[in-house]
Nucleic acid binder design. Sequence first.
DNA 1: TTGTAAGCGTTATCAA
DNA 2: TTGATAACGCTTACAA
Lengths: 343, 343
Amino acid sequence: MANKEITIKDVARLAECSPTTVSRVINNSDHPVSKDTEDKVKAAIKKLNFSPNRIAQGLKSDKSNIIGVIVHDICDSYFAEMVKGIEEFISGHEYIVNIYNTSRSVEKEVHAVNMLKANRADAIVFAGGALMDKEYEQKMYTIIEQLKAQGTILLGITPHPFEINNISLGNKTAAKIVTEHLLENGHRKIAFIDGPKNLYTSFLRREGLKDKLMENGLTLPDELIFDGDFSFEGGRKAALKLMDKIDQITAVLAANDATALGLIWELNNQGIKVPADISVVGIDDLPEAKYSYPPLTTVSLPIYQLGTNIGKYLLENLKEKKNSKFNSIDLKLIKRNSVKDIS
Amino acid sequence: MANKEITIKDVARLAECSPTTVSRVINNSDHPVSKDTEDKVKAAIKKLNFSPNRIAQGLKSDKSNIIGVIVHDICDSYFAEMVKGIEEFISGHEYIVNIYNTSRSVEKEVHAVNMLKANRADAIVFAGGALMDKEYEQKMYTIIEQLKAQGTILLGITPHPFEINNISLGNKTAAKIVTEHLLENGHRKIAFIDGPKNLYTSFLRREGLKDKLMENGLTLPDELIFDGDFSFEGGRKAALKLMDKIDQITAVLAANDATALGLIWELNNQGIKVPADISVVGIDDLPEAKYSYPPLTTVSLPIYQLGTNIGKYLLENLKEKKNSKFNSIDLKLIKRNSVKDIS
DNA sequence: TTGTAAGCGTTATCAA
DNA sequence: TTGATAACGCTTACAA
């Protein structure tokens, strides 16, 4: 910017009319404009290749057209797919998709929300699971209240510890579904590779496993819970730790697919056969899940579709103002070849 | 937005001073403000949890703080890494990172640039390779000129067919480096899996291979060029086509790692051993390249670092206004186990 | 040290 | 059918 910007006034001058008239033409206003001037204005716009300054429009209309999307890690296929789905739906409709990558840091997430507030974002999507942290909850609380007072649309994917429109993805259910599958295949001694400790999503998936085990009179001993961080690398490290207890288990549920994939890779690397020696399941159904050795049995959370549903929801609530409901997604067990029937 | 927004006036009222004074406090203005009023203003800001409306600030300062990043496919690790690098550097500094996912469509890319122009973006990064398309060039030309007149910082990663600051990534050189490696290992019959036809990057990498072959008195026959699209799936499909000509070649260069990975996967799937039966190399050094079977030999383009370099460049040129230079990245051959020495 | 007023590029209101 | 004017929230001369 900084230099000379073409404004509505320049157009008005060229079309020999007032800025008001130009505005009316731009916005297809109901207010009548003669065909003649309309043509002149359009010609001028074309000639100058003018586009109205949306910043100024935003100031006037009290809308920024900014949609904030707060993500934990854009390099994680899970978030990349979701963002792509959102973008696909949104960017075509003159909204700005503003990404924040928080690496699950409280500080960065608070910063992101503050920025979005300062920029008067029309909507904010908390795309990642909530952080389980008192400081986080406290800091967020007041900002969220204010955002709500300003009329910002707030959407939480997965339950968040503040009152916004929280969409349940069925994390607990997803864990139950794969656990059930393991159980049906005769597995009783099941280990768990955890997600990030401070993440509510990890908690939910862990609970799903525990609940399903409990329903069947089984338990998840603490020593069969291994650290993880939702990443491929985390899965690899877990595999190394898991080796010691390999004779105590027949199957392992990884908190997400990325972890499961890393786990399988390192297990292979260590000469342990999946599923012959040990069965592995994940959660998410990432695109790459079908290309591991063996292909990963998992639960599909159709993330891209979730993204387009988010986009649709946002668009409807921002534009048409009607209080449209969110289309939730379906979970589905995806059987591939990483589970052995030992029953 | 839409409802009641807290403004500088509210703060002024509470602090019993003028909006001007509040503004001075907010901006740490040189203009003197008494310690007493400063404290009162700060207290009021805190009490109201006020943050200045950056849209309004932007209108005044003729800055939007928007940085547009146009990407081909955010689900491609290549772009995800780059965006993460940019974001990491930028979002901490009160800029808005505005993502567009174009799927290499001329229409979408033009739309993205028009949106960015309408939003008076301070900078635009053309993160993906240029599209080779006459219509694209024409449509872009005038917009680019205008953007330049407005003072927008324009950065092209890889050469683009319009005059902006184009950063060469050394695509041609990268292809030469891996080709050289193949040659050193005794390979003479080398196939190529192409990238998207309309992409300049594909062209450059193909040329690199051809040039290096030519230097050694070799050629790349047309029937040894297989279609691809820079994706894992594309690599898989290419593998199936390649099967017919398997006896005519000893090695294959995939236009990028994603392709190479898909290729290797499908080759394995078809019972063809890499590198025993055929050697495979890629370009990019994606994070997942070291986890294929066998781990992929490739050329590293440190993409995340490229992203942070982009962020740094943008920040320096936007804030300090000094005409800082772009830090280019280094290419490096990454030898892993997908190439067999047959010399 | 403080404040008034004009203006950034738009659009809504009102008048002509 | 057209246009002057005020206003959106903020900053920047200019005055006091």
